[in-house]
C-alpha cells in the first residue's frame, strides 16, 4: 500500500475515524439514483412474475423443467465471479495497487462478457426445443424478465468498457476512483437481481 493511499483513504489504521458522517456513498450519488430505479423496475417485474405464478401455479411448476438448468447455472457462476473480480479491483485500487486492480477489472470484464454469450446460446437452445415467447405464460414472463435483465447486463458491460478505458489512461488513483466504484456498485446490483431470477425460472419446479 502506498503512503498516499494510507493518507488519502479512510482505512482502518487505528487513527480516529475519518469516515463521512452518515455513511459512505459507494461510487457517487448518480449511480445510486440509477440503481434505486433499477430495483424499482425489477420490483414491478417481480410483481408480474408472482401474480402470474399465483394465477398459473401448474405452468410455473412445470416451466423450469423445460429450461436449461446448465445455462442458468453458468450465467449465475459468470455473474458472481465477475462481481467478485470487480470487487477485488476496487479493493486493490484502494490499496494503491493500480496494476493488480486493472488485471482484476479485465478479469471481471471477461467473465461479464460470458453472460450475453451464454444467454445467446440458451435462447438458441430454447428455440431448438420449441420454447418461444408465446409458448405459455411461464415462458412469456421468463423472456420478459430475463431479456430485461440482459439489457441491464449490456449497460453494465458498456460501463465496464468505459471504466476500463479510464483505468488504462490512469484516471483512477487510490485517493480518487469514484467511477470504478460506481460501476462496481451497478454490477453488484445487477448480480443481486440475477441471483433472484435464477431460482424463480430454473429451480422452482
Amino acid at each position: 500500500m502506498t503512503t498516499a493511499a494510507i493518507q488519502a483513504f479512510p482505512v482502518d489504521d487505528g487513527q480516529p475515524d475519518r469516515q463521512p458522517a452518515g455513511g459512505r456513498i459507494p461510487g457517487n450519488h448518480g449511480i445510486w439514483v440509477g440503481i434505486t430505479c433499477e430495483f424499482v423496475e425489477f420490483l414491478v417485474l417481480f410483481t408480474v412474475y408472482f401474480v402470474a405464478r399465483a394465477h398459473n401455479a401448474e405452468a410455473f411448476e412445470a416451466g423450469p423443467g423445460r429450461l436449461s438448468t446448465l445455462a442458468g447455472t453458468a450465467i449465475t457462476l459468470l455473474m458472481v465471479t465477475s462481481s467478485f473480480f470487480i470487487a477485488c479491483s476496487v479493493t486493490t485500487m484502494r490499496a494503491g495497487q493500480q496494476r493488480q486492480s486493472l488485471y482484476w477489472l479485465i478479469g471481471g470484464l471477461v467473465f461479464a462478457l460470458g453472460y450475453p454469450l451464454v444467454k445467446y446460446l440458451e435462447f438458441q437452445w430454447n428455440l431448438g426445443h420449441g420454447i418461444h415467447g408465446d409458448s405459455g405464460i411461464f415462458f412469456t414472463v421468463y423472456y420478459y424478465l430475463t431479456l430485461t435483465h440482459l439489457v441491464h447486463g449490456f449497460w453494465g458491460i458498456l460501463g465496464l468498457l468505459w471504466v476500463l478505458a479510464n483505468h488504462v489512461n490512469g484516471s483512477y488513483t487510490a485517493e480518487s476512483h469514484p467511477g470504478l466504484e460506481a460501476l462496481a456498485s451497478y454490477w453488484h446490483a445487477t448480480d443481486i437481481i440475477w441471483l433472484a431470477l435464477f431460482p424463480l425460472f430454473y429451480l422452482l419446479a
Partner: peptide, 25 residues
C-alpha cells in the same frame, strides 16, 4: 436467495458502511 443477496450487498457493496438510504434500499 436472501442469503446470496445479503452476501453480495454486505461484502461486495459494503452496505454496512454505506449511507442509511443505500443500506435500506
Amino acid at each position: 436467495v436472501w442469503f446470496k443477496g445479503w452476501l453480495v450487498a454486505r461484502h461486495f457493496i459494503e452496505s454496512n458502511l454505506a449511507h442509511p438510504f443505500i443500506a435500506w434500499v
